[in-house]
């Protein structure tokens, strides 16, 4: 059961039940759709960018607890960050969830996002944890393309 508690931490369950920044922010000027065709998760991320800084961010969609909580916590983490800082944060997050479960998790600079360290034990769920992030990056690139985890 310890792996289970590690994956479904209370922060994740809370953000799944009550996702933050759920909806389209009023001044959003970029958006992108993302999907995970394997499990049917779908998400749209909306952002407003001013002077290369993410001033507003929100998401809509439906998915599993991991993808919903990840998108929710992501929106909290990236608001107010520069676009290049978002990219660096994604790099750290991606490195965390794809690192070996045997290694010490590198959680430096991740803040609340470190609750996703448990995903390392579940390679099939990495796509869930990163769907929101990939979609956000597509929105920031300004390309209105659909990103897919497949």
């Amino acid at each position: 059961m310890s792996e289970l508690r590690e994956l479904y931490q209370s922060v994740i369950l809370d953000h799944n039940k009550r996702p933050r920044n759920f909806g389209e922010p009023p001044n959003a000027d970029h958006s992108a759709d993302g999907d995970n065709p394997l499990c049917g998760d779908k998400i749209t991320v909306h952002v407003a960018v001013k002077d290369d800084v993410v001033t507003e961010v929100g998401f809509v969609g439906e998915g599993c607890a991991i993808s919903t909580a990840s998108a929710s916590l992501m929106t909290e983490a990236v608001k107010g960050l520069g676009v290049d800082e978002v990219e660096r944060l994604f790099g750290k997050f991606h490195a965390l969830v794809t690192s070996s479960p045997q290694s010490e998790p590198a959680i430096g600079g991740l803040g609340k996002l470190q609750v996703f360290a448990g995903v390392r034990e579940f390679p099939m769920r990495v796509k869930c944890a990163t769907l929101g992030w990939h979609t956000l990056r597509a929105a920031l690139e300004g390309t209105d393309r659909t990103v897919s985890t497949e």
């Binding site: 998915g63 769920r125 869930c128």
Partner: peptide
């Protein structure tokens, strides 16, 4: 209700139960 099939699949897997989840 309240649990996405994908999460159901992961939790059942930890119990040794293999079910299919998805479309």
């Amino acid at each position: 209700e309240g649990a996405h099939p994908h999460d159901i699949g992961t939790i059942l897997d930890l119990e040794g139960i293999a079910v299919r989840t998805g479309h």
